[in-house]
Design a binder for these strands. Structure first.
Lengths: 211, 211
DNA sequence: ACAAGCATGTTATAATATTAACATATCGCT
DNA sequence: AGCGATATGTTAATATTATAACATGCTTGT
């Protein structure tokens, strides 16, 4: 279900941030909030908040502001936090283990149902209660369980092969932890987490400040 | 040493990508490359490549293109890959452990010299040969070793406190793995890795494609 | 019930970022 | 050596993103 208009990526990437702040406001039992108040908390302009929210519809009320709870619900709906995604982890190394141990993903609708690896020493084991299977069984597994997202935490040299494998069996969402960009079909959605890039940018910014 | 002009963040965030592709080209023993060839490999426009590189100086030669090795060296210098940063990890949980086990950071100039935690069960132990110390000793440690970067992988509820702690002892670079934005002094450089945001965006994009 | 103030939704403007265009210099070949 | 092809660096144009301005309508207190 494509949202109303064409929403720019810049706006989409801010949505989780709105979600988080509204979540916090709810917890603080704050009932209403104006774009200006929110802008001070979030360190972005009130204009931008109003623009962003208006991409999806008029959630506010003039002279009043936004009702925190209903705005939270709207953002949740837009982000699809109510919907559930079935996920697998490919690569039971350090990062795969860390992801498998994160409890928060489930809260946000992401269920990790299996882990795959090639290491015989790991296959048959569990991480945080989730079974580790052989890569050879991936195709069969995906045929039996509808899998929405593959979280790829495999060694860099195998990422291309693994990405092609998981997409060939019909998985449409990839969370890519390798530094490489993936060239896959138009129908596949890839979200990258380039840790080393991020760290290098941090290094650059530090150096450019003279530290 | 601030680089020549004011370089936009958009450009800076692409630098590690150039670095990676050039590294690969070097390995493939490719001697020269034109912006058009590189643009095809990287899936960005040739114009953008020329614009980006020109922020830092004319590294190419008309009618020839760029010499891969010297361009690689230039990007390395700009990114400061030759410089070394001393890093600590705060939070010896899953993510902290994963980071401590990553060998690639050292190759890029980031030396992880200590891990800090509050859990007595972890203090005194090691991860990948790196000692885990009590948080209480952090201040003394930083006084004795110049620490450039703190990698914060602590539980969400303690992130603000920990961030204030590490900046109060003079650390200027923060690699923040918590979902919260940090409000710190102007002199502190914060680079965020918002994993859950990234995953939520992936979910949104999947849903908006109808999956 | 009414008026003053407030805050939205929206339109207009400004600032960034990306792409295209092009003039100039180098390469490579004959 | 000279000429066509090539590919840069740079300037111009376009597209995108962010900020500011403002008119409308709701709220709230008397």
């Amino acid at each position: 279900m494509p949202e109303e208009k064409k929403i720019s990526m810049a706006v989409i990437r801010r949505l989780p941030r709105y979600f988080r702040y509204l979540h916090d406001l709810l917890k603080l039992d704050i009932k209403r909030i104006s774009s200006r108040e929110l802008s001070e908390r979030m360190c972005i302009t009130a204009s931008q908040i109003r623009q962003d929210l208006n991409c999806f519809g008029g959630f506010g009320q003039q002279g009043y502001g936004y009702n925190v709870e209903s705005l939270y619900n709207e953002i949740s709906r837009i982000l699809g936090v109510d919907k559930r995604f079935t996920c697998i982890i490919v690569g039971a190394g350090n990062m795969g283990t860390a992801l498998a141990n994160y409890e928060n993903f489930k809260k946000r609708g992401f269920d990790i149902v299996a882990i795959f690896d090639v290491d015989p020493a790991k296959i048959g084991g569990k991480i945080n209660g989730i079974d580790i299977y052989s890569m050879d069984t991936l195709e069969d597994f995906v045929k039996q369980h509808k899998v929405d997202i593959a979280m790829l935490t495999v060694p860099n040299r195998t990422i291309t092969e693994v990405a092609e494998k998981v997409t060939s069996v019909g998985i449409k969402g990839i969370w890519n932890f390798s530094p490489h960009e993936l060239r896959l079909g138009e129908d596949v959605v890839v979200e990258n987490v380039h840790l080393s890039d991020s760290l290098m940018v941090l290094g650059y910014r530090l150096r450019s400040k003279g530290y």
